Computed example of a mutant assay.
Amino acid sequence: MARILIVDDKSLMRNTLKTILNKTEHVVVGEAETGLEAVQLYKELKPDLVTMDITMPEMSGIDAIKSIRQDFPEARVIMCSAMGQQKIIMEAIEAGAKDFIVKPFDDCRVMEALNRALK
Rank of each mutant, 00 (worst) to 15 (best):
A75G: 07
E112G: 08
K18V: 01
D8F: 06
Y42H: 12
R14Q: 13
M59S: 03
I54K: 04
I93G: 09
Q70F: 13
I88L: 14
K18R: 05
E112R: 13
D71M: 12
N15S: 14
G84D: 14
M83G: 09
I6Y: 02
V27W: 10
I68L: 09
L114H: 09
L114D: 03
D71A: 12
M83F: 13
K98W: 08
T51R: 05
M52W: 00
V27T: 14
P47T: 09
V50A: 12
G30H: 02
T19L: 15
R109Q: 15
L5I: 05
D8Y: 02
E91T: 02
I88R: 13
V102G: 06
L49R: 12
I68N: 06
T24I: 00
A82H: 13
E58R: 04
E33I: 06
D9L: 07
I20R: 07
L49D: 11
T19Q: 15
F100Y: 15
Q85E: 14
E74V: 03
M79S: 08
C80S: 06
M90D: 15
G96Y: 00
N22A: 11
E91W: 05
Y42Q: 04
P57E: 03
M111D: 08
L36W: 01
L17A: 10
V7I: 07
N115D: 12
V29Q: 06
E94G: 05
V110K: 02
A38P: 06
I78V: 11
A113C: 07
E37N: 07
K23M: 13
E44S: 13
A2Q: 06
A64C: 04
V7C: 03
K18F: 00
T16E: 10
I93S: 12
V28M: 03
P57W: 01
A113T: 01
L49P: 09
A92L: 06
R14N: 05
V110I: 13
M90I: 15
L45A: 11
K66F: 01
E74R: 04
S11F: 13
P47E: 09
R3T: 13
I62N: 01
I68W: 04
R76C: 05
F100H: 09
K10L: 11
